[in-house]
Design a protein around this nucleic acid. Structure first.
Lengths: 166, 166
DNA sequence: GTGCCGGTGGGGAAAAGTGGGGAAGGTGAA
DNA sequence: TTCACCTTCCCCACTTTTCCCCACCGGCAC
């Protein structure tokens, strides 16, 4: 199973390109020609998934009851906002303007690349700072631990996009 | 399995032609001469299916109990409103006035082409915006996740064109 | 000091998107 | 039946964007 960790500062160049940190390339077995899926939902950051991980999530979405307009809307938003990105010869991806806008990023700016287990997240440093302002580390960790006790079962995926957001 | 993703802005030219985005052509193995099925049901957009995907949907409809007037009506509306479209030499399709009208589109206007797994959807950008205005990403995703837990059972296809449309 | 690896920048070729002209075919009126 | 007109479709040409490749720069290790 794929496990991305750590945080890196990387520049987005004038063409909107972002180099995948070498450690993450190693962790995800990514090289020139590999594909990543970029998606924007929940949190103001760009989420980068290996194709396999992303397809699991897509499968879940596509198996829902599509007679429900809200399900169709969610599917459309999540899958419709995703993009396939191919790594160039220098292991970089091009982030489209739409993606950058969503995360308050732009070409020729600094970004944080955060490893979050199954995927990576690309943040505007200021947005990242601000998003964590409301809760202390202790609070957050306490929440995670109590969840673990309450439902020992399948916390794997849920934590990644989980209900804790609500 | 076919998996359309992403959203593209494309112009519908003065002749009502829409170019299929290159990535979607790749995803659906579409080229000049290929066929797509256009259909209008649920949501104010034009849905474009590869023939194979569409036929699955037709099969599901036709396997329903046709003694039920609602089933006959749904079948008639869905299959009856569909059109075969052939891609021209530049991988474009001609959208008829009836299709454009349904989606609040017209010749010489801008459209969004959204990939939603098995099919693509063509939207008027304003209609698209308005259709999702009511809910936040968090709400939608929360809904998806709670559905996931609540009903692990696979949905049948029936639900897709269900009576909720009436 | 030197070589390698990771990160950065930019130029040129190829592909994608867009627009329009003209032939072919079909329809309706004289 | 013939002509005129309109629609449809096919092809060509242009513009913009993308992406692929090459080159450089700095730092760390040997």
């Amino acid at each position: 199973m794929v496990r991305f960790r750590s945080t890196y500062e990387h520049n987005i160049d004038s063409k909107g390109r972002l180099a995948i940190p070498a450690k993450m390339r190693a962790a995800g077995d990514l090289g020139p020609g590999s594909e990543l899926i970029a998606a924007v939902f929940l949190d103001n950051c760009i989420k980068l998934f290996p194709v396999g991980e992303w397809e699991k999530l897509e499968d879940d979405l596509l198996s829902l009851d599509s007679s429900d307009p809200a399900v169709r809307e969610a599917t459309r938003k999540v899958i419709g906002s995703s993009q396939e990105l191919e790594l160039d010869g220098q292991a970089r991806v091009v982030l489209s303007k739409a993606l950058l806008d969503y995360a308050n990023l732009s070409a020729s700016s600094l970004a944080l690349v955060v490893g979050v287990g199954s995927h990576m997240e690309v943040w505007n440093p200021e947005t990242y700072q601000a998003s964590g302002g409301s809760r202390s580390n202790e609070d957050l960790f306490g929440l995670v631990m109590s969840n673990r006790k309450a439902s020992p079962a399948p916390l794997s995926v849920n934590l990644s996009y989980g209900p804790s957001a609500s």
